[in-house]
Write a protein that binds this DNA or RNA. Sequence first.
DNA 1: GGGCTGACAGCCT
DNA 2: GAGGCTGCCAGCC
Length: 110
Amino acid sequence: MLNDDRPFAQRVTRLVRGIPYGKVASYGDVAMLAGSPRAARGVGAVLSALPEESDVPWWRVVNGTGRISIRNIGGRMQRMLLEQEGIRFTSGERIDLTLYRWRPRTDMES
DNA sequence: GGGCTGACAGCCT
DNA sequence: GAGGCTGCCAGCC
């Protein structure tokens, strides 16, 4: 319906770019919004290919367990950026998705 | 054109 | 409740 002609990468990029400040989304959520609920890995692959000049908040995307799956320095940077946005990490470097999970359709709902 | 890797998610032990 | 294995999708060699 929307931009179906464009590659998944473009679609995922657009979705991630729509994540508000102080909010986080899981790869599965982005994948579902992108049209493929099972393409969680694809989302990670797309984000990994994002250029530094890109304005896509890739750090706002974490795995379904609220944990950072990155093993390189990127993971540490992601944690720093998330904390900088007000997101609090619990023991084990885990995030409370119950409080910070982004809801594109129920965000205005209380 | 085919095969391997990877920033995941879900189910089983 | 925690840890490990399998399955699916997209991207790159």
